[in-house]
Design a protein around this nucleic acid. Structure first.
Length: 340
DNA sequence: AATAACAACAACCGCCGACGT
DNA sequence: CACGTCGGCGGTTGTTGTTAT
């Protein structure tokens, strides 16, 4: 037997909170606390609300010392850096910003910050390029729909930001699209990616890749598998990883330093640094024009490759491929270990 | 002045791990 | 051990306010 139902769904009020409801809830919690049981709280307070709703209202709005709106530049920078490092873990990001709630930061990111940083992609797509988000024109026999790639796109988006930031620090290491790297990919994946490029003749002039040479950074994220073969979480801190449809990205982080890397169909990105990373949203904004063309080219490559690869390689296959086909060297691992 | 489009924000929904029964 | 709720989280939707036409 489980517990009793939390509330009578048919008999609870929904929608915006009235001032008197706020006052009741606030007064009760300030006097008695939550009692560690949100489900029982509305009955004690005398509210016809679900316990979850009360919890949300208290945490996001009524709780003392909350700040609303007016995000500072410093907060912007922290949000950007953390998002790039750990993704949409809003509760963790909120923990770094006193007085801010995860909901607040999530809204702020989705309505403002993200548009500031990525907002120009749509504009470029409108000029006859590949439609990244066109759900309406998707045919039944096409590869995965955009919605099916949403998880991958989230990682792609994060990687885009990361690449942009890396480029700002060192233009020659922005990313590496050297086809030589593709030998480390699954043969099928490699062939599909190359085919993808061949299908884009009309975009030749757009395919300006700023760096086709190795630079001083590790040759590719695929050369750093050792970090994942070993229990890094014991060495450095928390390990958080995700392997998503057609996309691979990863982040290792703790309080003092972070390590992020990603590889999308042969286009790799990696960096080592502390949290927050020393990038500022100002740096991004001041260079956004310069980055625009490059970013869209990368987006096209990734999107085309993702469409073709999606559904072909399973998560396990990708894992296996990365770990088996790469030859993570001590030199590479040492590089990741130093400079932190 | 009316209204459409967009932006901002509050709140809900559904998922998932933890845990009580 | 199985079942089912709780609490927390992130994604999404609905509502309200603002701006543009």
């Amino acid at each position: 037997m489980g517990r009793a139902p939390c509330c009578d769904k048919a008999n609870v009020k929904k929608g915006p909170w009235a001032p008197d409801e706020d006052a009741k809830l606030k007064a009760y919690i300030e006097k008695h606390g939550t009692g560690g049981n949100w489900i029982a709280l509305p009955r004690k307070v005398g509210l016809k609300r679900c316990g979850k709703s009360c919890r949300l209202r208290w945490l996001n709005y009524l709780r003392p010392n909350l700040k609303h709106g007016g995000f500072t530049q410093e907060e912007d920078d922290i949000i950007c850096s953390l998002y790039i490092s750990i993704g949409s873990r809003w509760s963790i990001i909120a923990a770094q910003l006193p007085g801010r709630t995860d909901n607040d930061i999530k809204n702020y990111w989705n309505t403002r910050l993200k548009k500031k940083l990525l907002g120009r992609r749509k504009q470029s797509n409108a000029k006859g390029r590949i439609a990244v988000d066109s759900e309406a024109t998707w045919r039944h026999d096409d590869p995965p729909r955009p919605s099916e790639l949403s998880n991958a796109n989230a990682a792609v988006e994060r990687l885009h930001l990361h690449m942009q930031l890396q480029y700002l620090q060192n233009p020659l290491s922005y990313f590496n699209a050297n086809p030589a790297l593709w030998s480390k990919m699954h043969p099928l994946l490699q062939e599909n990616t190359i085919q993808s490029l061949r299908f884009m003749p009309q975009q030749t002039e757009d395919l300006h890749i700023p760096c086709l040479e190795y630079d001083s950074r590790p040759p590719a994220a695929t050369s750093c598998p050792r970090a994942f073969q070993q229990p890094i979480s014991e060495e450095i801190g928390n390990l958080d990883s995700q392997v998503e449809l057609g996309t691979y990205s990863d982040a290792i982080y703790d309080d003092s330093r972070s390590l992020t890397l990603g590889a999308i169909n042969g286009i790799s990105s990696c960096s080592v640094g502390s949290i927050p990373i020393n990038y500022t949203s100002d740096m991004i904004m001041s260079n956004i024009d310069q980055l625009s063309d490059t970013r869209n080219t990368v987006a096209e490559l990734e999107n085309m490759a993702n469409r073709r690869i999606g559904g072909i390689m399973s998560k396990e296959e990708q894992d296996l491929d990365y770990f088996e086909s790469s030859n993570g060297s001590d030199e590479c691992f040492n590089w990741w270990s130093k400079d932190i």
